[in-house]
């Protein structure tokens, strides 16, 4: 076993202090844009923490989705709201209570959890069965096995959540703008630096995304991480003016967004042939899992891209 207090432990403690410090700054800084940037930094630190906890799949997800995508979404909103400062809080006699009650509740829950962390004997009993049944799943990465086999039903509902969020955010479109292209119209000079970057990066991004998708079956990565990268490439290409932003009424973009969950649900429904639900037969486990993942990756990429672009809006 490792010595009781090693350099790595020191690293961990410093990392934790940094994470908490950045979280506090993000929560207290007045400037809203700064708070958003601090949240992204926070996400990157948390991703490092996940690497230290041996959870590389989560680290990839946290970096790509938790830090990257959430950050982009927030920055986009801050820019659209054209505000950086928090409005001065209205003075009210509840103001004191409105800070003290949350503060004491936060303190209570944090200290309660810390107490539990130190005193309770925690149990993780599922790792053994996960590994024991791995040969039947057709993949070597146990996390992928959980996501697309043992608990594939969670993932099915989760992709439906993404789908619902997409339709929900389309639902915020102005009625008279329905059918327009998503987001603001992009104004990019054709030979500008962004356009060049937007032409240069997508091929690299596609390769990285395919790598992460392909590696997900056996090592680290998977549909969600790869889908996020594809979404980023897609958005960059739109920002650079290489391709046009899609519109919500377009048949092809709707098909992209729907293909993954639809194929997944279809596979789930074929399970009734075996008097069950969402069966991944052992014989075809690997190709079927990869097919589901491929469709999901496409849909996740399309959905995330559309969520970032947001509803169509009038140019100011």
């Amino acid at each position: 076993m490792a010595p009781a207090f090693s350099a790595l432990t020191l690293f961990d403690v410093v990392l934790c202090v940094l994470i908490i410090g950045v979280a506090l700054c993000s929560s207290s800084v007045r400037d809203l844009f700064a708070a958003t940037v601090l949240l992204i930094i926070y996400g990157v630190f948390v991703a490092i923490a996940w690497v230290r906890l041996g959870a590389v799949d989560v680290a990839l997800a946290e970096a790509a989705i938790g830090a990257g995508l959430t950050g982009v979404l927030l920055i986009g909103a801050v820019a659209r709201l054209k505000i950086t400062e928090s409005p001065a809080a209205a003075v009210s006699r509840w103001q004191f209570a409105a800070k003290v009650i949350p503060a004491s509740l936060g303190l209570l829950i944090a200290s309660g959890l810390a107490y539990l962390v130190l005193t309770v004997e925690w149990r993780e009993t599922l790792q053994a069965p996960v590994l024991a049944n791995l040969p039947d799943t057709g993949v070597l990465n146990p996390v992928t096995a959980v996501l697309l086999n043992y608990r594939a039903y969670d993932t099915l509902l989760e992709t439906s959540v993404l789908f619902a969020a997409l339709i929900a955010s389309w639902c915020t479109t102005h009625d008279d703008l329905w059918g327009e292209r998503a987001g603001l119209r992009q104004h990019t000079r054709r030979a500008g630096i962004l356009a060049t970057f937007g032409r240069f990066l997508p091929p690299i991004g596609l390769i990285v995304g395919i790598h992460i998708f392909w590696a997900g079956a056996d090592k680290w990565g998977g549909a969600f991480q790869a889908g996020t990268i594809f979404a980023a490439v897609w958005i960059l290409a739109i920002m650079a003016g290489v391709i046009d932003a899609p519109n919500a009424t377009g048949r092809s973009i709707r098909s992209f967004a729907v293909a993954g969950p639809m194929f997944f649900t279809f596979v789930a429904l074929t399970g009734v042939l075996a008097q069950s639900f969402l069966i991944i037969p052992v014989m075809v486990a690997k190709p079927l899992t990869l097919a589901i993942e491929a469709c999901l990756t496409l849909s996740i990429a399309a959905t995330l891209m559309l969520l970032v672009l947001g509803a169509p809006r009038r140019s100011a």
Binding site: I193, L194, F197, L201, I204
Partner: peptide, 13 residues
């Protein structure tokens, strides 16, 4: 190399 490329573009912007 990728980071350099991104940094160069972003600083330009």
């Amino acid at each position: 190399l990728l980071t350099m490329l991104a940094a160069a573009t972003v600083s330009q912007l």
